[in-house]
């Protein structure tokens, strides 16, 4: 149910002439924020409903990862210290947030045909909810793991760590932008799903997650720093592992990529909002 125009002026509004615009979409998101919240809660509930230990399952996965990487890097490859596993985990957790969001967002409009074809609401809600659901999972995991890891690896607190929420925020905005782009394009080209799988694999290796930037030749390092996920993951490693303030390049790219992705995503979904019901 939605209200047409401004109720205080009594006249007829021509709905056919209301052009879609970023402003209208943002206003819609604001009006439907309760739906956004409910969609995120629904996904969280559905994920853990029926399992006995519920949320603990989502901790098991990173825990297992940490154990495996510790064994591989310190016992088998003998390539790094235990402290390096801390470095790995910082990157992997943030990467999982991004990769899961991107993967799930492709279907967020295309797989919701029934809803999109029978009720009007701002379609941007669907991919946004997907990202926020993954953000919620990431936040919960981090809330449990980060203190544990700081203790386990004997990392003393440092002032730069206060920046963590800022970069999580920037990464979330960037991811929402990417999700809007992917959700819109999948509605028109189903191939996007498969492309995303390939692109994620490439992106994973061009992001400094399993390796450290200072081990790379200077030329390659600059390229890797330009990779879209590098500034965010680089920032987490800076503030927790190196315990230093992120440099200007990281700030610039982190903000820049978030703005570009968000503007592009909004522009794309607004342009196509009216044709989803016909195309899926």
């Amino acid at each position: 149910m939605f209200r047409v125009g401004d109720p205080t002026v009594s006249a007829m509004v021509n709905r056919a002439a209301e052009a879609p615009s970023i402003r209208r979409t943002l206003r819609g998101l604001q009006q439907y924020r309760h739906l956004l919240r409910n969609l995120v809660l629904k996904d969280l509930k559905l994920k853990y409903r029926g399992s006995v230990v519920g949320f603990l399952w989502s901790l098991a996965n990173p825990l297992l990862m940490a154990v495996v990487y510790t064994v591989v890097f310190t016992k088998i490859l003998r390539a790094g210290s235990e402290g390096f596993v801390f470095y790995l985990m910082l990157g992997l957790l943030a990467w999982t947030f991004f990769a899961n969001s991107a993967g799930m967002s492709t279907g967020s409009i295309a797989d919701n045909g029934g809803l999109v074809k029978s009720v009007w609401f701002p379609r941007a809600i669907l991919p946004t909810a997907t990202v926020l659901f993954n953000l919620a999972q990431y936040t919960l995991t981090v809330l449990v793991f980060l203190p544990l890891m700081l203790l386990y690896y004997h990392v003393p607190p440092a002032a730069p760590m206060l920046l963590f929420p800022v970069f999580v925020g920037l990464q979330s905005l960037f991811t929402i932008g990417v999700a809007l782009i992917l959700a819109t394009s999948t509605a028109f080209f189903r191939d996007v799903r498969h492309l995303v799988e390939v692109a994620l694999a490439v992106l994973f290796w061009t992001t400094p997650i399993l390796y450290q930037l200072d081990h790379l030749p200077a030329r390659v390092r600059r390229l890797i720093l330009m990779s879209p996920m590098s500034p965010y993951i680089g920032a987490y490693q800076d503030i927790f592992y190196y315990r230093q303030w992120p440099d200007a390049a990281i700030w610039l790219t982190a903000v820049g990529y978030a703005v570009v992705a968000l503007v592009l995503g909004l522009w794309l979904i607004v342009r196509n909002e009216d044709s989803f019901a016909e195309r899926i």
Binding site: M1, F2, V4, T8, V9, V13, R15, W120, A277
Partner: peptide, 23 residues
């Protein structure tokens, strides 16, 4: 209901009308 946009022509709705759909 606002799910499809008209290709041509006008759709006038009284201002402030709350439209509910059970499609």
């Amino acid at each position: 209901a606002g799910i499809h946009r008209p290709t041509t022509g006008e759709l006038l709705v009284a201002r402030g009308t709350r439209i509910g759909s059970m499609i």
